[in-house]
């Protein structure tokens, strides 16, 4: 008994982490089931969808373009510095292109979307929850999932791959500018090698990942907002948890998606 008492401080946080993870997983699963039900029973609101598309897709462009450009430039410079030692300067474009298309483009765009869009979703829905606006929706015979979650999810499903494609394109262009104009790599070799080693599946993988990441951001953020408790502190906590959980989920899912998609393509 004494030993159990001593071990409690060690095991209690682990136990709480596990139960919290399982609770979140259960809540997101239930939310997912309700979203499927909503798609079956209702026609999503076109107006809400367009509004969210503007907020998520159009207004996130500056963040995503900046991230894509910065990543492309840094990756190009670092790759060049290492490859230059073994006289493989012209392979830089290929490394940047493959890296941006299949890994860095989708993951970094998703992380930036989590910070900008996921946090906003959790905070907005959380505020609506604590100010009884969600209850008001329900009394007006409107299901919160139909009204709030579905338009956001649809907008992310459309926006995430487009923004990822934009990040990839901007990253590769920025790397070309740095590689050719600043570091002196021959442009023709840079582009030929890039084309030779970047296969369409790399871009496909990146876009598939971005769709999955879009679903993760929407579901985790909406769930945290809708289950928010307490006042301003609760909204702050829900927002932080949404960003942390969605970010970690994206990184973990990315690893498994990479393995799965590689196996799928190899057949």
């Amino acid at each position: 008994m004494c030993r159990g008492y001593l071990l409690r401080p060690v095991f209690n946080p682990i136990y709480q982490r596990i139960t919290s993870f399982l609770r979140d997983l259960g809540e997101v699963s239930l939310l997912g089931a309700e979203v499927v039900r909503s798609f079956r029973l209702n026609r999503p609101s076109w107006k809400d969808f367009v509004y969210q598309l503007h907020f998520i897709g159009v207004k996130s462009q500056s963040v995503v373009i900046t991230t894509g450009a910065a990543t492309g430039m840094v990756l190009c410079a670092q790759t060049y510095f290492q490859f230059h030692k073994v006289k493989m300067d012209t392979a830089t474009g290929a490394v940047v292109s493959v890296g941006m298309s299949s890994e860095l483009g989708p993951v970094l765009a998703a992380l930036m979307l989590t910070g900008r869009v996921g946090a906003a979703m959790a905070a907005e829905l959380g505020t609506m929850k604590v100010t009884e606006q969600i209850d008001a929706l329900r009394t007006l015979a409107a299901h919160p999932v139909d009204t709030l979650v579905v338009p956001r999810l649809l907008a992310l499903l459309v926006s995430a791959p487009l923004l990822t494609a934009e990040a990839i394109l901007v990253g590769i262009t920025a790397s070309w500018l740095i590689g050719v104009k600043l570091l002196g790599i021959d442009s023709a070799y840079y582009l030929v090698n890039m084309n030779r080693y970047t296969i369409p599946e790399d871009v496909f993988n990146g876009l598939v990942k971005s769709v999955v990441f879009g679903v993760i951001i929407a579901m985790v953020s909406c769930n945290k907002g809708l289950t928010c408790r307490g006042g301003a502190e609760g909204v702050g906590r829900a927002t932080t948890e949404a960003v942390v959980i969605a970010s970690i989920s994206i990184l973990v899912t990315n690893f498994f998606l990479t393995l799965f998609l590689a196996r799928l393509i190899k057949g």
């Binding site: 505020t127 329900r138 015979a141 299901h143």
Partner: peptide, 23 residues
């Protein structure tokens, strides 16, 4: 369940303590 309740709630109107208008 919640979706069945939505139909019953069409009978009701509710004024909340802080009005709960959509911001």
């Amino acid at each position: 369940d919640e979706r069945r309740l939505l139909q019953v709630r069409r009978r009701f109107g509710m004024l909340f303590q802080m009005a709960a208008l959509f911001d």
